[in-house]
Amino acid sequence: MDIKVLGTGCTNCKNTIALIDQVAKAKGVTVKLEKVEELRDIMGYGVMSTPGVVIDGKVVHAGGVPSRDKVESWLGA
């Protein structure tokens, strides 16, 4: 699973990465987690509110730290 977290380096972006990493480890799911910090690259997904989360090329979240439940649903129940 290829996961990108879009954001220019704010605390919420860092917390989002940490949460996804934590949930992935807890579930034993292998993910490729990547930060996307360049504005041009972020806007390439059309995301105005960060953090944004892109899974396998699809934007699944934009704006604010996602809930743990939401992250768990992305990574499989």
Partner: peptide
């Protein structure tokens, strides 16, 4: 405005 410019480019 740079963000806005990119957003419109995206569209």
């Amino acid at each position: 405005s740079l963000k806005a410019t990119y957003f419109l480019q995206f569209h």
